[in-house]
Design a protein around this nucleic acid. Structure first.
Length: 573
DNA sequence: GCCGTTTTCGGCCCGACTGTTTTCAGTCG
């Protein structure tokens, strides 16, 4: 059992306890422990095998340590079974809907017998939800809209979650000596923000043995289909995995074919037909003759094209660009010279300024911006002018302690309802770099939301608009904002837009980045790290930027310190 | 349920907003 699964089980306990009306601090204790375990580098099973004392972990005490042990040893959690006798476990599903928390979930169950989202849809459509005290027609409508949104995104998981599932499986396959190569194709390889299923390709000297080895993977829940060279299974996470075993010579063609996208491949095959060629997963053929297919590069070369990176294969003009020799030289994680959004213990971060600075230094960055929250976000301990000044004292100390890196005085300033900023101008002027972002009132109608954001971006002291749409993948819809107007405003003011690298956000998304690039708007890729290890999430942002065709010159934080400083100075004047 | 101590209890980030009320519960971040 992985740490993420243990964390999920503890979260479920917390949700159910909340529905039963348990002491809120007890609920929080489970959530705190879940967060500790989820972000702990060493698997709990390893700690337990080593007889380590789990109560040494922050937020883990005697009881939860025992529960973790129980989960690791027999995969069950007695406390969960006990609570499940009081309320149905399926009620936690209801709480994923906007406007439904623990109290309403319980009320819906007690008064309408609602246990599942399907039950809730029926009750809402029949108008029964609006009859409950404390709920009305508007809430009923909101719930129905929430159910629609939930069903639209069902079945796709976030890329980072897929990484966590796929990496151990690939390691497992590589352990088998009869397998010489393994590659993950599909949208996973194109680094799409969400993944529907996993396409695995393997070259094997012993295909039969390789299939048997795959079938023995312990996370397989059911096998849908298993033949000599192809198998489809469902993992216990619910993720579908297709494995194909191939001969060496068709590897490139198969990798190209199964990486897709479908639209890219259709366009590619159409081009091939015009050249009297046929492209399939077995190779490129002229009549009976196989002319290419061992590597992806020779598949493209046989069609008169340079190699096209997987992130671009969406039929968004990449074939035309390839033909005309104007494919972008995509940004890589090695190009990144600084990280421009992160938090410390001064707001909701987990580590000190110094620790974050050392983390950035260790990544080889030349500069970083410390961007704690502003006071409007009270829950995060956001800073007002007084505390901000106090923070600068510690920041100066960190500068002396970690002299290898330039630490910018910065803040992630909330945009208030009317588009004004949550920090006085006099303070804004003393910051090296000003981020602004939306964290409240995310449901405003489009006209009002656009007006609000545009006003904030016109403030002369602002440098970067952080996570511009505010979406959380599979959790929260983006704010309603006129993207054309936003981009026009950014282009006009010279402000930079953020590509937030956090795998829950990836905001801006690929298509917006593409549009921003066309307008010449500078982009910054930032991790939004709340602890040192999250600085390592940078690659997700870079992958998203690559899907948006971005080159190093489009990304401000690929510039060396001196050039980046020059941009900051130019903004100031 | 965890934690830390002014050490075995008492405190634990809390303000804003919405929709429902008629003074506030519930949700959200």
């Amino acid at each position: 059992m992985e740490n993420t699964e243990i964390a999920r089980a503890l979260e479920e306990v917390a949700d159910l306890l909340e529905i039963t009306g348990a002491n809120p601090f007890r609920v929080r204790a489970y959530r705190n422990a879940a967060r500790t375990i989820e972000s702990h580098a060493t698997p709990m099973r390893t700690l337990i095998a080593d007889h380590a004392d789990l109560t040494a972990l922050p937020a883990v005490g005697k009881d939860i340590a025992r529960y973790v042990g129980e989960l690791v040893v027999n995969g069950r959690l007695s406390v969960l079974d006990e609570i499940a006798e009081q309320v149905p476990r399926s009620l936690v599903e209801l709480m994923r809907l906007p406007g439904v928390g623990p109290k309403r979930a319980r009320k819906l169950w007690e008064e309408l017998g609602v246990e599942t989202i399907a039950d809730l849809r029926r009750a809402a459509e029949a108008g029964k939800v609006a009859t409950l005290s404390g709920l009305g027609v508007k809430t009923q409508e909101r719930i129905l809209k929430g159910i629609d949104a939930l069903e639209r995104r069902q079945g796709r998981i976030r890329l980072a979650d897929a990484d966590a599932i796929v990496e151990p499986l690939v390691d497992w396959l590589r352990q088998f000596p009869g397998i010489t190569r393994v590659e993950v194709a599909g949208s996973y390889r194109r680094r799409l923000e969400t993944v529907g299923d996993i396409d695995l390709l393997a070259i094997a000297t012993d295909a039969e043995g390789a299939m048997a080895h795959f079938a023995a993977y312990r996370r397989i829940r059911t096998t849908e289909m298993a033949g000599p060279t192809r198998a489809t299974v469902l993992l216990d996470s619910g993720l579908q995995v297709d494995l194909r075993i191939l001969p060496e010579e068709s590897y490139g063609a198969a990798l190209q074919y199964f990486t897709g996208s479908k639209e890219h491949n259709v366009a590619l095959r159409t081009r091939a037909v015009g050249m009297d060629l046929k492209v399939s997963e077995y190779g490129v053929f002229r009549g009976e003759n196989r002319v290419a297919g061992t590597t992806e590069a020779d598949v493209y070369a046989s069609l008169g094209l340079p190699y096209i990176p997987p992130e671009l294969r969406e039929n968004r003009g990449e074939l035309e660009a390839a033909l005309e020799g104007r494919l972008p030289h995509l940004v890589t994680v090695e190009d990144i010279t600084g990280d421009l959004q992160m938090h410390s213990t001064w707001s909701d971060g987990k580590q000190s300024i110094r620790e974050m600075a050392e983390g950035c230094r260790d990544r080889g960055y030349a500069y970083m911006a410390l961007t704690d929250h502003s006071k409007n976000l009270a829950m995060t301990g956001g800073l007002d002018a007084t505390r901000l000044r106090a923070q600068w004292v510690e920041l100066d100390a960190a500068r002396a302690q970690v002299p290898e890196i330039r630490i910018y005085r910065s803040l992630e300033v909330d945009i208030l309802r009317d588009g004004s900023l949550d920090l006085e101008d006099e303070m804004l002027e003393q910051l090296d770099l000003v981020l602004v972002s939306v964290h409240t009132l995310m449901d405003l109608p489009q006209a009002e939301q656009t007006r609000r954001v545009v006003r904030a971006l016109q403030h002369p002291r602002v440098h970067v608009f952080a996570h511009p749409t505010g979406r959380l993948i599979n959790q929260r819809e983006p704010i309603q904002v006129d993207m054309d107007e936003l981009l026009a405003c950014a282009a006009h003011t010279g402000i930079a837009l953020e590509c937030n690298a956090h795998p829950n956000r990836l905001d801006l998304r690929d298509t917006h980045l593409l549009a921003a690039r066309e307008r010449g708007i500078p982009i910054v890729i930032s991790t939004d790290a709340h602890q040192v290890r999250e600085l390592g999430l940078m690659h997700y942002g870079v992958e998203q930027a690559r899907r948006g065709w971005l080159e190093p010159r489009d990304v401000l934080n690929t510039r060396p310190l001196r050039e980046f400083d020059a941009w900051l100075t130019a903004r100031k004047t």
